[in-house]
Design a protein around this nucleic acid. Sequence first.
RNA 1: GAGCCAUUAGCUCAGCAGGUAGAGCACCGGACUUUUAAUCCGGGUGUCCCGCGUUCGAAUCGCGGAUGGCUCACCA
Length: 496
Amino acid sequence: MNEEHMDHLEDRTELNELMAVRREKLRDLIDLGIDPFGEKFECTHSAKQILENFADLEGQETAIAGRIMSLRTHGKATFADLMDSSGRIQLYFRIDVLGEEQYGLLEKVDLGDILGIRGKIFRTRRGEISVEVHNMKFLSKSLRPLPSQWYGLKDVDLRYRQRYVDLIVNPEVRRVFETRSRIIQCIREFLVERGFIEVETPTLHPIAGGASARPFITHHNVLDMDLYLRIAPELYLKRLLVGGFDKVFEIGKNFRNEGISTKHNPEFTSCEVYQAYGDAQDMMKLTEEIFAYIAQKVVGSYKIVFQGQEIDLTPPWPRLPMLEAIKQYCGVDLTGMNDGQARQAAKEKGLTLEANASYANVVEEFFDAFVEPKLIQPVFITDHPVEVSPLAKRKKDNPKLTDRFEPFIVTWEMANGFTELNDPIDQEYRFRQQMAQREAGDEEAHMMDEDFIRALEYGMPPAGGLGLGIDRMVMLFTDSPSIRDVLLFPHMRPRS
RNA sequence: GAGCCAUUAGCUCAGCAGGUAGAGCACCGGACUUUUAAUCCGGGUGUCCCGCGUUCGAAUCGCGGAUGGCUCACCA
């Protein structure tokens, strides 16, 4: 503690009483020659280990560390709850065991302080497994009061902005992120076991491709060029197929400069998978198997509950062509119609669309309005119109449709996959169509990527591709209705 | 971007026919050597989100703004 440090400590004019009191205790500790912000502490056990192995550990000495979450003083004895990353365990302090000096230090302990404890494992009269403290060390003094233990932190604004506090006082929040980690681990495991290689491709793209979305733009100073944060890794991963990697996947962030909602965050995590010599059928199988694998590992069952509804993830899931789905859910068969006929059909169903809406636009409108809200149980919607699928291969028997699929669960699109377009001539044609849309004002239309065409011209094996929306998967498996609940630090506007 | 709602103590909330702010927990002082939302006695610690207006008087009413939530729009 140097002079500057001490001066700073005195400067608390803007602190409320609760914080001022904590700083006084901090000062008292320093005056007693105790470092309030401790040092390395070797633990012998976690709280959970002690609780689970009490029979073997009873009477033994232990060293544990964690945050003080509750204090119950009874004069010459005190109980406290210590929380570490595994759970909570009770501490028992006695003046006749600790001596007056050490016991007196308890007066300087606040809820939230991080302590290192050495003591003996025992069980209290009331049966609670506890540690009788023989020695305590301050590892970090907490200078701010924690939210109420009983009510937790409810204010969602504060919970997201100060997630560290949320994590301290709301244990179920911690569990969501542990599950998120396990889900990603499962996906890796599953793919690696099947011979896929995990790769990393650029996040800074000279051309934002692989999806229809508005990109974020950034600037490289030395090169004096604008770059885009990637909206999808797809085109780079397919270049790897050209280069001879047959089975690759990438887990990482994508960035889309679009609206924020309960299902959209400007940066989100996807897992894209490509398998040479495969097709959409293979990727659908892979998709349902991944979900089933996660369900088994994380929930222990193919049946999960989301917002009160039971979802059965048992594979295989039904396959339902998009046009058939529309026919099934609203009785309109759009098959073979031209733009004008399709618009007329939409009008008759009361759908509002732009005057120059294309056939593909109409199909999307119908799907969004009548089908999507009904898709609760897992189903693959297949055979999307070619206009909205510029990177997917056309169906052999109908060049207006693509060999594409999207699994829907609880009305959400959970993934997107298709048989990859490996014909450079058709790909160039598709890009030109997209550019025409771009010029017509569609900012989300795909950009031309000459180098990607060149890669295809060297020859890309036929392949199946899949993009999984990790955040939505985590929402599904953790029963979270908002994407913000599965992002540690969701995007928030800065506080003014 | 639009509509609706919310914002009061560290946290969770009450208070709104307009009269100068309250509870529980936390916190502070005291008692207490097996408690566990410990208990008992005493203490309210506040920019009522911000600004302007109406009024003798605003947490409360009006207008504008900030942030958040939900819905819609946008968007895979």
